[in-house]
Design a protein around this nucleic acid. Structure first.
Lengths: 235, 235
DNA sequence: CTCCAAGGTGTACGGCGTACGCCTCCGTCG
DNA sequence: CGACGGAGGCGTACGCCGTACACCTTGGAG
C-alpha cells in the first residue's frame, strides 16, 4: 500500500460538464447511444454519480437542448424584420444540423425548455417590433411551425432515399430499383430529375438547403403580403 | 385431469390482429406504454408469440403507421388540385389527431413505410396532374413538409401551455404565472389575447385547427401564385 | 479537531427487446 | 389410419436500460 499518492485526481463533475459530454456523445454516437451508463463511462464515473447533477434522464435531455439552442445567433439588429427572421432561422438550421438529434428530442419532450421559450419569445418580439398585431404574430408563428427552429421534417428526403439501393451507392442517375419506380412513379420522376440537374451534389438527389430556403422564403413573402395588407383576424 | 375440454380456445393471432391491438394500445395508453410485453398481455399471449407475426418492434411500429396512414381518404376526384390537396391534408390531420402518437413515430422511424410512400406519391400525382412541372412539384412537397401528413409540430402550443399553472385549470384569462409573463412578455401577450377573444373554446388559448388551416391556406395560395406564374427553377 | 454536507460508489430492482429451444397442435400424405 | 412436419404459442435467459437507496470519502467551516 505505498501509492495512494499520485492518484490521477480527475477534474470533478459539474452540470456543465455533464451536459457538454452528453451533447458530444449524442452528436458522435447518435441519440440512441445516449444512456446514463455510456455517458458516465465517457466521464470516467459511475452512472449514479450523474444524478448529483441532473434530476433524471428527461431533465438531462432538456438541459442538452438548452445548451444547443443557446448556440443560435441572437437576432440581427438594425435590419428589417424579414431579413432578421430569415438570418436567425438559417442560424438555427446550421446549429441543428450540427446536432441532428435535437429536432427529435424537442418533439419528444412534451414541455418547452426555457431556452426554447426565450428563442420563440424573441422571435415574436421581432414581429411585434415591426408592427405586427398580436394576432398576426401569433398566426405567423404557427405558420412557420418547426421551421422557426431550423428544421422541417425531411420525410420527403426519407422517401427519396427509400428508392436508393444500398447505403452508400455512388447514385448513378436513374439507378432506382425498378420496383420502386413502378409503384411510386411520381416520386421516381422527381428523384430522377433532381439527380440529373445538379451534378454538383454527388450522391444526393436534391439540395436540402435550397429546399429549406425555398419554403422559408415562400412563407416570408406570404407573411409580408399579409402584413402590408394590414391583416386583421377574420375569425 | 378431467377438463382439457371446454378450453376458452381464443381466436388465433395474426399480423392483422397484432397491429390493430397495438394501434389501440398506443391510442389509449400512449406510445410509451406500447411494449411487446404489454401488447402480448392485451392479446392474452406470451410476449415471444408476437415475433411469429412481426419481425421486431421497429417493424411492428412501421406496420402500425401503415394501418393508420391507410385511414386517410383517397384524393378527391373531379375538383381542382387546390381543393383536392386541401381536403386530403385535412383528412390526414383528422386521422393523425385520432392517433396522436403517429407523428412522432413517423419522425423517429428513419425509413418511410410503403403506405407513406404511396400517400406522398399520390399527392405528387395530384400536382403533376394539374400541370405542375416536376421541379415545382418537388419544391412544393418540401415546402409543405410534415403538413402534407396533417401535422406540424405544435411546439408553439407547448410553449403556450408552459405558461399555464396546473394541468387542468379552467384557464381564467390572464392567469399566467407572473414569472412567465416577466421572462417571455411576447408569448404572454399572445396567450392573453388568444384566450380573450374566443370565449367559445374553453380552456384552450387558441384554436389549433384554425392555425393549421391558416398556415395551410397561406402555403396553398403561395403555391397557386407560383404555378400561375409558370414558375421554373431558378437555381 | 470535529462535523457536516457535497459528491462519488455499489448494489439491487423492475422493465425492456429479443435469441433460442421446446412443445403442441393440425393438415397433409403415404 | 398413422406418421410427419411445419406453424405457432411457450419458457427461460441474457444483456441492456433508468434509477432508488444506503454507503463512503473528502475538504472546508466552526
Amino acid at each position: 500500500m505505498a501509492e495512494q499518492t499520485e492518484a490521477p485526481r480527475r477534474t470533478p463533475l459539474s452540470r456543465e460538464r455533464v451536459l457538454r459530454a452528453a451533447v458530444t456523445l449524442a452528436d458522435e454516437a447518435g441519440i440512441d447511444s445516449l444512456s446514463m451508463r455510456n455517458l458516465a463511462q465517457d466521464l470516467g464515473v459511475v452512472p449514479m454519480a450523474l444524478y448529483k447533477h441532473v434530476a433524471n434522464k428527461d431533465e438531462l435531455v432538456a438541459g442538452m437542448i438548452d445548451v444547443v439552442i443557446d448556440e443560435i445567433d441572437p437576432p440581427l439588429a438594425g435590419t428589417d424584420w424579414k431579413h432578421a427572421v430569415r438570418e436567425r432561422i438559417l442560424s438555427a438550421r446550421r446549429v441543428l444540423r450540427r446536432h441532428p438529434w435535437v429536432s427529435l428530442a424537442i418533439e419528444s419532450q412534451q414541455t418547452a425548455t426555457p431556452a426554447i421559450l426565450a428563442y420563440l419569445d424573441s422571435m415574436v418580439g421581432t414581429f411585434r417590433g415591426a408592427g405586427f398585431s398580436v394576432d398576426l404574430a401569433h398566426h405567423v408563428m404557427h405558420a412557420m411551425g418547426s421551421r422557426t427552429l431550423g428544421f422541417s421534417q425531411e420525410l420527403f428526403d426519407t422517401a427519396r432515399n427509400a428508392g436508393r439501393t444500398g447505403a452508400t451507392t455512388p447514385a448513378p442517375p436513374a439507378a432506382l430499383p425498378a420496383q420502386f419506380a413502378d409503384r411510386f412513379p411520381n416520386l421516381a420522376e422527381i428523384a430522377v430529375v433532381a439527380s440529373h440537374d445538379d451534378a454538383s451534389v454527388v450522391g444526393r438527389g436534391c439540395d436540402d438547403q435550397f429546399e429549406f430556403e425555398f419554403a422559408l422564403d415562400l412563407l416570408l413573402e406570404s407573411i409580408e403580403r399579409l402584413h402590408q395588407q394590414g391583416w386583421t383576424s377574420s375569425r
